[in-house]
Design a protein around this nucleic acid. Structure first.
Lengths: 201, 201
DNA sequence: TGCACCCGAATGAACGTTCGATTGATGCAT
DNA sequence: ATGCATCAATCGAACGTTCATTCGGGTGCA
């Protein structure tokens, strides 16, 4: 099994879709291989032909979803965007990706909070939730003296943390989704992250 | 079984401690009742005497931990604290509680990301992660025109989101714990949350 | 012929839960 | 005081189910 195959083989696509759907509705617990086979209409034996174990399936699915996220969030940045516009754009994409892909959000939440993630942490050097590219982007803002002159990880924690918390609150709590709310949230993060010594607006 | 008993009965305390420990190290998956019985040195039959099912045990444990958190975060606020000082104090307590109780943090992360939480959402009217008291506190800041004049849920998302993200980054990533880092993070949130029309420092 | 792909009944381990037995404390009638 | 009944607390072997995984066989293409 290789990455290219994962995108072309429709059986694997069906398995991914079914796993995502089942984990979203029934949780990690409630998604046995038998149900994945049923939902995807792919025989259990076939699933095990591509994935040596259930863990391997989950891990492959994780990498697949992560690349979807990474492709998404930096998409659509125009040449004429200044830093603040990009700062807003990426953050908004981040939130919208999770809102539009509720199954992936749910899967990620469960994946990251499982000791399974902790065990494979070493193998997950790459961005978590697209954070590496985000990290570079925020570091750029620090270098340009646009953002506060602090450890970039602090800004990442704020940037990502508010986004995830926002999605969670929209999904589970009383927070309504609206462009106005997103705009005000972005202002909150921006005002917090921006270098007060150079503030202009 | 009632709440008072839960605090006095040492068998239940042992069961709670064992469950917390096992979930932290092995995850929701890897903590069968048999292991809880083994680790706590309480017979399976006895556990089922107090909790009708595993779900009930988990739910009771959740409520227990939540009350620990609630008791903790608003503790130690002095009379002479102004709003900003309280704002910092509570946030810092929030982060420190989770850092000092890594097992509870891990348990909460798994609990909230499980569909189990979604199913019992109705029954969990009370504060999630102490958010209700936090909500009231932030609403107070809005009413006093100290914080931005926005929907309080936006500020909650920022306040809590950054805290959780910070703990997560300290636990799993490259972020070092230091008072200096906490202080800078609190400044980021404060600068984002504060009413710019009345800014003084 | 070989190899990749595909299938699903069968397997054995692990799980949540049940149940009958035992103990000791409490209350009550004698 | 004594005998009796009740019941919460305790225990862990046993039960039935469900799960991840295996395996032997089937198909069609190179």
């Amino acid at each position: 099994m290789n990455v290219r195959l994962m995108h072309t083989n429709e059986k694997i696509a069906a398995v991914f879709a079914a796993t995502l759907k089942l984990i979203h509705t029934n949780g990690f617990h409630g998604t046995p291989m038998s149900k994945i086979a049923q939902e995807s209409e792919v025989a259990i034996g076939t699933i095990y032909h591509y994935f040596p174990s259930k863990d391997d399936l989950i891990f492959a699915l994780f990498k697949h979803c992560r690349s979807l996220l990474n492709d998404y969030i930096f998409d659509g940045i125009k040449e004429d965007f200044d830093y603040k516009a990009s700062f807003f754009h990426v953050w908004r994409n981040f939130v919208k990706f999770y809102l539009e892909n509720a199954q992936i959000f749910s899967f990620f939440e469960q994946f990251f909070s499982s000791p399974y993630y902790e065990k494979n942490k070493a193998e997950i050097q790459e961005p978590v939730g697209g954070q590496n590219k985000v990290l570079d982007f925020l570091q750029e803002g620090i270098d340009k003296k646009i953002l506060k002159q602090v450890n970039v990880h602090l800004l990442v924690a704020s940037y990502i943390g508010v986004a995830l918390s926002t999605v969670h609150n929209i999904k589970f709590k009383d927070l309504q989704f609206s462009e106005q709310n997103l705009k005000e949230l972005m202002e909150i993060i921006w005002d917090g992250a921006v270098n007060r010594n150079k503030i202009i607006n």
